[in-house]
Write a protein that binds this DNA or RNA. Structure first.
Lengths: 184, 184
DNA sequence: CGTTAAACGGACCGATGGTCCGAATCGTAG
DNA sequence: CTACGATTCGGACCATCGGTCCGTTTAACG
């Protein structure tokens, strides 16, 4: 990759990140806005990322890297229920901290958010843990259901709840679905 | 309302219904398409329904009427868990039978699907039942989580599952969340 | 039938995602 | 350092879409 190309790629990612972070509605961030903020022509933007979806995915994967790495090496042996709790909590935090970007990703059109490599990975992981925790019966669907509970637009809808309340709700959900009796 | 206005309103609703039903991607149904299919000018379409969201909501409420009525009078006394199972099953069936329309409704932009009178009603009802079934602790969030599990794009994503499998998954989810032990 | 208020409908507008191609720039070979 | 080909740049340009405007038509009523 030529030097100017690499430089522009970084500039675009950074600019787009700032724009999404400071946007209430991700749909309000246009490709023209991104190009302008990055000091780059529209052609450059589209050649590098293909289309809007490509840009959003690239940005998303950038932000996801660290979190994904944290769980990549998470070896077995741990209580599967606790593992699911940890994953769901991490996802919830991520959605809270990356509201606009996450919403942009989940509203790309087509089958989003399900046509998405990252979703597939999380689902596989959670489904496996669910199968371990309570049998393989409906593990696949229950994993989908858990992930649906932290979808960004729901998190966004509940943004006037205290974070702790939301977190407690998610944890309660996970434990219930995993077959633990309700607390208290 | 003038007679021609009423006639055109019906024509638009019927045409839009057909278009959405036969569309894979609801975004592919444009307002121009609807106007043309209804044999009506664009101005008429927008004057009657305000904007795209208005049209989709009108169509949605039309289709929802029967289902809503079924639960409107559902008096108490029934086992709350069974009541939630019934509601979730009805919602699931509705999403399956109205794929494109439901997806259109849930992807209107803004805080959709949560800025929606119907959602509020379903949530209130489910939350109340959840509170009855397992205490008020996290009932509010758990109701959101249940409803999220039958969101139309998830249902659509799983459209190669047999309906019975999906239905069983939803039922299993509801019973788990309500505190029943996993079956088997 | 005449009058009036309401509805009609399609030309028009602004914005947006995406394309195109001549101009500018990078990397390299000589 | 220079010359040159390949790659990238960038913004004018295009098609489409939601939504508006306004001259024209038409339903309703006395």
């Amino acid at each position: 990759m030529r030097a100017d190309a690499a430089r522009n790629r970084e500039a675009v990612l950074q600019a787009a990140g700032l724009l999404f972070d400071s946007a209430d509605d991700p749909a309000g961030v246009s490709m023209d806005d991104v190009a302008a903020a990055a000091g780059v022509g529209k052609g450059t933007l589209f050649r590098r990322f293909g289309d809007r979806a490509g840009l959003v995915r690239a940005l998303y994967e950038l932000r996801t890297e660290r979190m994904a790495a944290e769980f990549e090496g998470a070896t077995g042996g741990e209580d599967p229920v606790e593992a699911v709790v940890r994953i769901m909590d991490a996802l919830l935090r991520f959605k809270i901290e990356n509201r606009a970007l996450s919403r942009a990703l989940e509203s790309l059109g087509g089958g989003s958010p399900y046509t998405n490599a990252a979703y597939g990975r999380w689902h596989a992981r959670v489904a496996a843990l669910m199968a371990e925790a309570r049998g393989p019966e409906a593990a696949d669907f229950l994993a989908h259901a858990l992930l649906a509970a932290v979808r960004s637009d729901l998190v966004d809808h509940l943004d006037d709840w205290p974070d702790a309340h939301l977190k407690a709700g998610v944890e309660e959900l996970v434990r219930s679905v995993c077959g633990e009796r309700p607390t208290g």
